[in-house]
Design a protein around this nucleic acid. Sequence first.
DNA 1: TTGACAGCATACTCGGTAGTATGTTTGCAT
DNA 2: ATGCAAACATACTACCGAGTATGCTGTCAA
Lengths: 210, 210
Amino acid sequence: MSGQSAQLAKKPMSKSKGEILDAAAEVFMRLGADAASIDDVARHLGSTKGRIYHHFPSKGVLLAEVCLRASDFVHDVVGPAVDPATSPEINLRRMIALHIPEILRTLPYHKVIIQSYVGINQKSTTALERELFERIRVERRQYEDIFRGILSAGMKDGSFRQQNLSVTLQSLLLLINAPVFWYSPRADEPADFLTKLTEQLSDMAVAALR
Amino acid sequence: MSGQSAQLAKKPMSKSKGEILDAAAEVFMRLGADAASIDDVARHLGSTKGRIYHHFPSKGVLLAEVCLRASDFVHDVVGPAVDPATSPEINLRRMIALHIPEILRTLPYHKVIIQSYVGINQKSTTALERELFERIRVERRQYEDIFRGILSAGMKDGSFRQQNLSVTLQSLLLLINAPVFWYSPRADEPADFLTKLTEQLSDMAVAALR
DNA sequence: TTGACAGCATACTCGGTAGTATGTTTGCAT
DNA sequence: ATGCAAACATACTACCGAGTATGCTGTCAA
């Protein structure tokens, strides 16, 4: 059973398609995108293959759309928050404070997209799949560039220590995505755990830059 | 006859088995452990399936032994370096300075073991596979505990900021493993790049703790 | 009422892969 | 030299899972 999915203004997505994406994210997360079969996803939906292949032409496209949605989630939340008029450190703290809760809210999607970073499953045969994965790459690049700009500005005005920009960027992104690797919601966790977690990671991330 | 004590000694591995593990790490890294077939590994070796199945009873065991070796590499190098008589910060810097070059030296192995962290491929049917994966879990736990002890001591004596220990630990480990996600050796990189990289990551890691 | 299409279910095909069974060579002790 | 494992190669089988072809059912417009 899947919770309510946030409707994105960008793509008017059918309700059924959204449910399939949620289920795919969940199943791909648990079994791994390669090991999981379309039948596994269908079973988790309480339906059959036919429904999935009615909305998605292939497993690769389904996987790609899960990853694309993961990318959109954070991008749409963090992107608008950046304010060129403010200081780099304030901007960065604000971005992180939005980024972390969002990836925790849409955790399965991000656990899936991370799989595509460690195992380069580019068996992408069809043209559509290649196009989608290219769009994912572009979107990630754009998202990185937002942080890159903040870091660059911060190194210039002395807020952050001057060092290799790419290494700094990758380390920062990994740090604020860290919960994706180890976090899974528990019943006995304190109510303010996520708040505390976000604060701590923000502090550590900013501290790592000085 | 030192044969008897070989039980506790690490593992006198045959040359051929080592070659197979190297090839498996390389191929699993490139294609993903699930997508890659045993024939792919054999082809990369210039041989056939028969050779692999002569040394390994199943693909799962092969994968497990790759992961186990990845774990051993860093454990054997970093483990002996810790000195209880020294300060937490000195210890931590020394450990990181050994950890990072070692994972870069044995990069394919670590790219593979990371896959098993994001995609929980527990199709482990056989008892042997379960035993091996359990040993991997235990070894990782032990390795984590080394850092946990240092962090705990550092928080107590004021070297490090006091905050959630588990979150700090996971973030630190992710930070010093960061190159596994994005680094691949290039011909045109400066000779001192790895040294600089190690220094920067050490600095960032320690800075993140204050 | 009908017919036409979206939204799925059912029942297949078919290629790829893990694993096996068995042959063949190489090293090596006696 | 000769026997005999170890260390492979070759040639299969069995099965799983992606993709397809087709059938079924509701909905809605004309």
